[in-house]
Write a protein that binds this DNA or RNA. Structure first.
Length: 564
RNA sequence: CGGGGCGUAGCGCAGUCUGGUAGCGCACCACAAUGGGGUUGUGGGGGUCGUGAGUUCAAAUCUCGCCGCCCCGACCA
């Protein structure tokens, strides 16, 4: 392809609204252009990358025996009402009406549609197992779309759904997808990790996420290398300490602590660390608020809190007014002693030799309170987020934390949708059995951004070879001045094209500096420079985007290196 | 949704407080010089100042409405 035909414009300055590197580089390199919040046009170069990713996924899915189909992007409300998600899914669902005022949505996912297909098409266990997939544009009306295509509203996703007679078969199908995903991400040249995950609103049993490791990732992953344990931090259990607790001999004492509504100011006043304090959080409950008590430096884990019986979902903090109303006490000075509400304690609170807590009296805290003497040594539960250095849940080694970008998610759904939508087959005894289902997603468009997050330098993108828009870029130096350069460059271009090498030819009449800078920004893996000087010596310059080393090679050697 | 910010040329911004000919850098076009790392000079094209109403002799600038975009949002008890 000739560069001049791409309609490509690169940008030297960073657009002001791009926060993360992949978003900046995608805009600067002309891969995408924004139409509106969370809506992007894929420009020719960007689309080439998108298609590469898509095709790797498609090939691996096909290899695994999955069947591609294509479902409508727009779906009738009736199916969603049947599954119960028309209300459950909330405002992520983009609802639209047709001319007859009938309700539709732009599909954020396709469990309902595929289950509808299954119930209409599948009659016998002999048709199972099956895996259908599609690569389709989805729309989720995100609260806050951001980071370009990373969290866009409209995005391209591969979603697959498998159907099984029983759990055993589902597990086989699930494991096959696990393998398939690993192969696909390996082919894309991405460093990734598979982690245990929450199945969220899709529902179901087992679920794992595939994360591309990158500092800008939205999810924190806790992992233990010793035992190959990895889980989304939201889901990582924290353990009750087995160590013997040395309890402080001091007796609790009430201290005057004005203007210390938060942990930071309390610590400053008393000259202590947050880990010496506890915080008492009031969460909305079905009847009265429910108190949870955590060490001052720990963070409440919402998923864990959601399991407390009687709690209102989604988990929300009670506000100042509600606190006053339900306890009679003041915001900022709530503590577990004589609170008069149901209280849940995190494991770590029991391990504190003494603790500092609100005294349920404005401007007063207790210091040197004691878990057994003053709180009555209650049972504790797991309520907090795991942290770096916590013991690994498998009992061996300590946890580290990395950030990751979720690019794939596999679920064992079980029979949630097949029961709701009455999709069943007859087993070999003639009995109707609801289908066991798995579902498996890959964020195709997000992968493009994730790949950039993981592969870039100051000059621009460094594409892994298998997803690069072009493999080679030929840069002739001052071609318009030198017939020799033009002939040699075009000759090599034609040759490589005939070898089915994806090659970009920079035919622009501009200074070499700009050509080099653009080639690096766009991230083409191999750069070939053809110049008057080189031709005289029978040499051309070969340079890899990764190593940045230039080598002068003969035409034959260069071709060999490109093709290999 | 709550809080904050922004909307002026393709991009990045100044001008708004204090109303009076719409500017700068990059990009773009032409010419010339230069010719292996975003070169230089000269000349040029391009803007309903987000939008609607109001105030005024006069509005990018003041007032009100609307729209759009961006950032932050349990971690406070």
């Amino acid at each position: 392809m000739f560069y001049s035909k791409l309609g490509l414009t690169t940008i030297k300055e960073n657009p002001s609204d791009a926060e993360i590197i992949s978003h900046q580089l995608m805009l600067r390199a002309g891969l995408i252009r924004k139409l509106s919040a969370g809506l992007y046009t894929w420009m020719p170069i960007g689309l080439r990358v998108l298609r590469k990713v898509e095709n790797i996924v498609r090939e691996e899915m096909n290899n695994a025996g999955a069947q591609e189909l294509l479902m409508p992007a727009v779906q009738p409300s009736s199916l969603w009402e049947e599954s119960g998600r028309w209300n459950e899914y909330g405002s992520l669902l983009l609802r639209i009406k047709d001319r007859h005022n009938r309700d539709y949505c732009f599909g954020p996912t396709h469990e309902e549609v595929i289950t509808d297909i299954a119930r209409k098409e599948l009659r016998s266990h002999k048709q199972l197992p099956l895996n259908f997939y599609q690569i389709q544009t989805k729309f989720r009306d995100e609260i806050r779309p951001r980071f370009g295509v990373m969290r866009a509203r409209e995005f391209l996703m591969k979603d697959a759904y498998s159907f099984h007679l029983d759990q055993d078969s589902l597990e086989q199908g699930y494991n096959l997808m696990h393998e398939t995903y690993s192969k696909a991400f390996e082919r894309m040249g991405l460093e990734f990790r598979v982690v245990d995950a929450d199945s969220g609103e899709i529902g179901g049993n087992r679920s794992q996420e595939f994360h591309v490791i990158a500092d800008s990732g939205e999810d924190a992953i806790a992992y233990c290398d010793e035992e190959n344990y990895a889980a989304n931090i939201e889901l990582t259990p924290t353990l009750k300490s087995q160590a013997k607790i040395v309890k402080s001999k001091k007796r609790k004492e009430k201290k005057h602590t004005p203007n210390t509504k938060d942990i930071a100011s309390l610590c400053k006043l008393l000259k202590v660390e947050p880990k010496d304090t506890v915080k008492t959080l009031l969460l909305k409950g079905e009847k009265k608020p429910i108190a949870v008590v955590l060490r001052g430096d720990h963070q409440l884990n919402i998923i864990k809190a959601a399991k407390i019986s009687g709690i209102s979902l989604p988990v929300t903090m009670a506000d100042e007014k509600e606190i006053k109303k339900s306890t009679g006490y003041d915001f900022g000075y709530i503590g577990p002693i004589d609170l008069g509400l149901e209280i849940y304690y995190d494991h770590a609170v029991a391990e504190m030799p003494s603790l500092i807590c609100g005294a349920n009296e404005k401007d007063y805290h207790f210091v040197d309170a004691n878990f057994s003497d003053d709180l009555g040594n209650p049972d504790t539960i797991d309520l907090r987020n795991a942290e770096v250095g916590d013991p690994s849940p498998n009992g061996r080694g300590k946890l580290s934390v990395a950030r990751g970008i979720e690019v794939g998610h596999i679920f064992q759904l079980g029979t949630k949708y097949s029961q709701a939508l009455k999709a069943s087959v007859q087993d070999d005894s003639g009995k109707d059995v609801p289908l066991s289902m798995g579902c498996y997603g890959i964020g195709i468009s997000r992968i493009v951004a994730a790949a950039i997050e993981q592969n870039h330098d100051e000059s621009g993108i460094i594409w892994p070879e298998n997803i690069a828009p072009y493999k080679v870029i030929i840069i002739p130096i001052n071609m318009h001045k030198s017939k020799k350069v033009e002939t040699a460059a075009l000759d090599l271009y034609e040759f490589l094209k005939n070898q089915n090498i994806e090659v970009l030819f920079d035919d622009r009449k501009i200074r070499p500096g700009i050509q080099f800078a653009d080639a690096e920004l766009i991230g083409i893996p191999i750069r070939i420079v053809i110049s008057e000087k080189g031709i005289t010596n029978n040499q051309i310059e070969f340079r890899s985007r990764i190593s940045q080393d230039s080598e002068m090679l003969s035409r034959e050697e260069a071709i060999k290196r490109i093709i290999s």
